[in-house]
Design a protein around this nucleic acid. Structure first.
Length: 500
DNA sequence: GCGGATCAC
DNA sequence: TATGGTGATCCGC
């Protein structure tokens, strides 16, 4: 159903893993089949592709097993299960909390936007941040070609031969991120960053305080703001193909920028509502960093996250805090948009004719019978548009790790040397964090992309290179022995410390 | 406690 | 030529 553009069964089988994910923003109206054809062509025959095919067959097997279980379920079982879920839904409904104003803020094409800001000649060209083996992100022009985050650069180049690749500059992204976080802190000191480019915060308390702010305190200056132009550019990105936007859109931007405007027009006084406050935050972010952000406003984090994607880039979307508005939103919400539902879960649910969050409620009985309690409860919550109404900093970390991909290694001395380097790095990180741990794990990825982890625990917490390497190298020794006399061919090794 | 798998970013 | 790194969680032993 992803549109492979091919008749071969094996190729079809792997499509849901390999194919372009068109669920994300900036993907409307692409030549999906052509793009997938190119991705497939470039991947076919590689060890990576072979492994993806294998994994796909495994999920197909999971689906088949699940359907067998479904066949054994009687109508009576289902009725009973629906009752259990309805009782739970009743409890959840009583506890429904629509009183919080939760915001999810997401920077637009963050790393690419930083690079374009610092090198404006990139602004009218398709570009991506990363290297030939892997991309971190791409700008919106590149997305028109199907070039996306987590795609290898050499495939992106086939989709878009003019694509410009920029290596990562994490120091710059960290600095921009810090500037954004300083603003967010003013609205919620307990805001919760999820990564450099994304954060949740709770606007509820600010909105109370906001009522007594003066006009001056709600007035900000943004030299980069021009609503009219941005609106046009956005429309054209959505409607036209890449070349047209390239030549027309950007030219027009320059023309209009040349028109002298009163400084006042870039001074805006924001109102008192939640939407006003979020507009203000995005306006201030742009003023400070020259970067745009998108945001979602909703009564809980699950919905806010989905909403921040809705009007991307440089937009925001609010779900009104009423049960009707929430249920209406969830009625058509595709399950894949919901956090925690990935490719595999999507495929399993689709095989049960579940495509939207409402479908999850319709099929709540079988979900209860086919999935674990944790999963089915989570599905039920999602189907009711429920999620966390508090944003909190993630608790103590539970593990710390390092892993590296390298050109294939197989001689034991090379492998032990590489392992030692990783242990050195891990030991250093542990000491910097002032942590020690009792469980050492190694991760191995062989030349066929198969991943294996092995771990062992020691009685006392350790952090030294010597102690970590002693555990890790013994684990590696066992794996080399298990293969013997064949060589252990690896393309990645990792070391992790847990039970901290 | 272990190992595989899934997921987010 | 070439498909990442870090951390969390869940499930089934």
């Amino acid at each position: 159903n992803q549109g492979a553009g091919t008749d071969n069964k094996n190729e079809m089988a792997v499509m849901s893993r390999m194919a372009l994910n068109t669920n994300k923003a900036g993907m409307e109206g692409l030549d999906k089949d052509r793009i997938n054809q190119i991705i497939l062509e470039a991947s076919k025959g590689s060890r990576f592709y072979e492994n993806e095919q294998k994994k796909e067959l495994e999920t197909d097997q999971r689906v088949a097993t699940m359907k067998q279980q479904l066949d054994l379920i009687t109508e009576k079982d289902k009725q009973k299960a629906v009752k259990v879920m309805d009782a739970l839904a009743q409890q959840l409904e009583v506890a429904r909390d629509l009183s919080r104003t939760i915001v999810h803020l997401d920077m637009d094409a963050f790393y690419a936007a930083v690079e374009m800001r610092d090198n404006p000649s990139l602004k009218d060209k398709p570009m991506a941040v990363g290297c030939m083996s892997m991309l971190c992100t791409s700008n919106y022009l590149a997305r028109r070609f199907g070039v996306r985050a987590a795609m290898p650069g050499f495939i992106a180049k086939k989709l878009c031969p003019d694509l410009i690749l920029i290596p990562t500059n994490f120091d710059k992204y960290r600095e921009a991120s810090k500037q954004v976080r300083e603003i967010l802190k003013e609205y919620d000191p307990n805001f919760c960053p999820m990564s450099l480019d994304e954060a949740y915060f709770d606007l509820t308390e600010h909105l109370v305080k906001r009522k007594s702010l003066t006009d001056k305190q709600r007035t900000f200056y943004n030299p980069y703001h021009c609503a009219k132009i941005e609106c046009k550019i956005k429309d054209e990105l959505k409607g036209m193909n890449c070349r047209d936007v390239n030549s027309k859109g950007v030219e027009r931007l320059d023309d209009e920028r040349n028109i002298e405007e009163e400084d006042n027009s870039k001074c805006v006084t924001f109102g008192f509502t939640d939407e006003d406050a979020v507009n203000e935050i995005r306006f201030r972010i742009q003023a400070k960093t020259q970067l745009t952000a998108s945001a979602g406003i909703a009564p809980n984090t699950m919905l806010a996250k989905v909403c921040s994607d809705k009007n991307k880039p440089n937009g925001q979307y609010k779900i009104q805090p009423t049960r009707e508005a929430v249920m209406d939103f969830v009625r058509t919400l595709p399950i894949r948009k919901v956090g925690g539902i990935g490719k595999v879960t999507e495929k399993m649910l689709k095989s049960l004719n579940i495509e939207t969050c409402r479908d999850m409620f319709v099929h709540r009985g079988i979900l209860h019978l086919l999935f674990s309690e944790i999963s089915s409860h989570h599905f039920l919550q999602t189907s009711l548009g429920l999620g966390s109404t508090r944003v909190e900093r993630s608790s103590e970390r539970k593990s710390i790790s390092v892993e590296r991909t390298f050109r294939e290694l197989s001689t034991p001395s090379d492998l032990y040397l590489k392992l030692n380097e990783l242990c050195q790095s891990l030991s250093k990180d542990l000491k910097e964090e002032e942590m020690m741990g009792k469980t050492v794990s190694i991760k191995l990825k062989n030349d066929k992309f198969q991943v294996k982890t092995r771990s062992s625990s020691v009685p006392h917490a350790i952090d030294s290179l010597e102690a970590i390497y002693a555990s890790a190298s013994e684990l590696l020794r066992l794996e080399i022995m298990a293969c013997h006399p064949d060589p252990l061919k690896l393309r990645l090794m990792g070391v992790r410390m847990s039970s901290l």
